[in-house]
Computed example of a mutant assay.
Amino acid sequence: MTNGLPDISLPCLGNGPDTRLADLRGPLVINVWAQWCPPCRQESPYLADLQKKAGAKVKLIGIDYDDPRADEAVKFAVEQKLDYPHLVDQDKQARVPFKIGGPPLTAFVDKDGALVHIHYGAFSSQQELDQLVKDKLGVTW
């Protein structure tokens, strides 16, 4: 799996510019989530912890997917300390390119913008997420 990110633009959750996914470069972790999704809520502390630990070495972006309540999504992201940019995919533009059955899903993107791995479902532990970042993106901290 070494294709680039799809050429779709998504609006920012909250205030901010639209982002064209094809322009993004890594090392990057893209987490597809929704505030109504229990497994997304369960894994959110792992993503917040990764962002704290990996800092400038790994970028994180969230995509609030198929979520009718943007206000609740913003509230959830703030409560969970998900202090990285979040985009909105209300129209499920990412469904086909990422093969999304439903959230959560986490994509790993290398420094050249290639999509190197997709993890379907929630992470079961911090160790699982950290290990994937090390194995797929070659990033350690």
Rank of each mutant, 00 (worst) to 15 (best):
D71K: 12
L5Q: 06
P45N: 06
F76C: 05
G138Q: 10
V78E: 15
L137P: 02
R41I: 11
R69K: 14
L129F: 09
P17W: 00
G102R: 06
G121C: 01
Q51N: 14
A77V: 15
Q93C: 01
H117W: 12
F76M: 12
G113T: 03
K53R: 13
S9Q: 13
Q126C: 00
G26L: 07
T19H: 00
D64T: 07
R20F: 01
D23L: 06
Q90Y: 13
L24R: 06
V78A: 12
P68R: 12
Q35S: 15
P103I: 01
D18F: 02
V78R: 14
V88G: 04
Q90S: 14
A54R: 08
L60E: 03
V133C: 02
T19I: 14
T140D: 14
P45D: 07
C37N: 08
G4H: 08
K134L: 14
L115H: 03
K52N: 06
N31Q: 09
L132A: 07
P38W: 02
G4W: 04
W36N: 02
Q80N: 09
F76R: 09
P68D: 15
D130P: 01
Q42K: 14
V78L: 09
P103S: 06
L5K: 05
V109W: 08
K75Y: 05
D135P: 02
G14Q: 04
A56D: 15
G121L: 00
C12K: 13
L82W: 02
L47H: 11
F123A: 02
P6N: 10
K53A: 11
K81E: 14
D64H: 08
H117K: 13
G121P: 05
R20K: 15
G26M: 08
V116F: 08
H86W: 05
R69T: 09
W36F: 11
R25F: 04
G4E: 09
G4L: 11
L10I: 03
I30C: 11
E79C: 00
P104A: 05
V29C: 10
Q127H: 12
R41M: 08
P85C: 06
D7F: 02
Q93K: 15
